[in-house]
Design a protein around this nucleic acid. Structure first.
Length: 134
RNA sequence: CCGGCCGGCACGGGCGGCCGCUCCGCGGGAGACCGCGGAGAGGAAAGUCCGAACUCCGCAGGGCAGGGUGGUGGGUAACGCCCACCGUCCGCGAGGACAGGGAAAGCGCCACAGAGAACAGACAGCCCGGGCCCGCGCCGGGCUACGGUGAAACGGCGAGGUAAGAGCUCACCGCGGGGGCGGCGACGUCCCCGGCACGGCAAGCCCCACCCGGAGAAAGACCAAAUAGGGGAGGCCUGGUGUGGCCCGCACCGCACUCCCGGGUAGGUCGUUCGAGGCCCGCGGCGACGCGGGUCGGAGAUCGAUGGCCGCCGCCGCCCGCCCGCGCGGGCGCGACAGGAUUCGGCUUACGGGCCGGGCCGGCGCA
RNA sequence: GGCCCCGUCGUCUAGGCCGGCCUAGGACAUCAGGUUUUCAACCUGGUAACACGGGUUCAAAUCCCGUCGGGGUCA
């Protein structure tokens, strides 16, 4: 559909505070060595990405920005291999040199499949328990 | 040559390829979006320590309380910032540091030691006279130099003087008062007088002078689903509410009466980038800076845009190899601190080197 | 993004306003000894801290300034 397979337009980004809140509240979690992935079905043909780096991972904000860019790059370059129809929030867990593009890409693919499977399993029985009391 | 001091400057690798991000312009498309072109983090963007602009609160009036600043003069929109000068202290010096008003308005504190710690007094002691049991632990009087303690001891050191002493007298220094001269002033300097009467702490309370209304872009303005039924204006009176801690003042609300229909959450748009702006030249000023002229257009994201993968060149550091060095080759790291979130002026803190000044100081050597 | 508060033994704290016998007290924990056949409890003793750097002062955990940490709050 999109002529450029490696593009990352705004459509594919998770936007707005409430969207993030919903994923954090209802999403299925999968944790690896350097990442945590939280997934939630979004009833769209594509998957959307949100990144959240806690301040306790690194105090340095340039370092936090670097982690976010790497995650985004891994998502952009491997989008065709990732499951679709999910809202993903990816949280880097460790700073520093272990956080390379290859490692992030491999773990992102593995964890988003895991979390996506868990999310669809939780959604299929019961009529969409998303009605959030609030 | 070695060591050191001060000030200033531009920087934060460069070029190229591919894949991407945000905004703007143009074109295409019904639209999602696509193509082309342009722009796209810092000197500290940081900490949020000050000062402002801007916005709202009843336009902010008075009093009390509270907070801040603290040599003088200037600069500035303003400042707790900057400049010049003064004073004190440190350094051989270039220079550096300083919250640097008032302690004879008052209160408070000054541990330990010491006789005595703030107002005088006399522990050990000295001297004179008298008495005596004449090697006295006696009486009367004079005295505080000397001794010891302490961070600090009632002016310091020296000389005269004396029974011993004492600003008792004298010189110098300090202190206080008065006057002359220089300076806008802080202050400096000189002369005269007094003869000591005034210990320290105000980053303890406090006094004096000056400054400060409060909140902060999550300020605030507009559009406006769902849901819920209320909301606004006028008159009236005991009460209540409000932006800062209180009071006065001020404004608003509520009960009952009359009149009129809009108010507002999620979400979105604006605020949002041209401003005490940068650069160049000239003039004034010791300088901070000011005045005049010319010229430039340079981020606006909203879970938050500058990145990723490569190639070549360059710098520095480290490691390895070639015979030590010189030099050559290879490898690693591109190296620090760190990223806008309304915008400026400062301060502070973090940090890698480089360049400049016919700059300055000390030491050694040579001429 | 703004505003506000707090840093004391391993942990929770007292002291701070009003500086000095603070060589910093207490509780729990820990170590050693005692008691007990042993364990617990109890008794005695010990180890152990003023976040960091400057300044004011004769003297700073305390007062002032600056860093660095930790926390709260506001749509």
């Amino acid at each position: 559909m999109t002529p450029r397979p490696y593009a990352f337009p705004r459509r594919l980004r998770l936007r707005g505070e409430t969207t993030f809140r919903n994923v954090f509240r209802e999403g299925a979690r999968a944790r690896g060595g350097i990442l945590q992935v939280i997934a939630r079905g979004n009833d769209l043909p594509e998957s959307r990405l949100g990144i959240s780096v806690a301040r306790r991972v690194t105090r340095s904000s340039p370092e936090r920005n670097r982690l976010k860019r790497l995650v985004r790059e891994a998502f952009r370059l491997n989008r065709t291999r990732l499951p679709s129809g999910l809202d993903l929030v990816v949280c880097p867990l460790v700073p520093g040199r272990a956080f390379t593009l290859g490692a992030v890409a491999a773990e992102l693919e593995r964890l988003s499949r895991q979390a996506g499977a868990k999310a669809s399993r939780a959604r299929s029985p019961g009529p969409t328990g998303g009605g959030a009391p609030r």
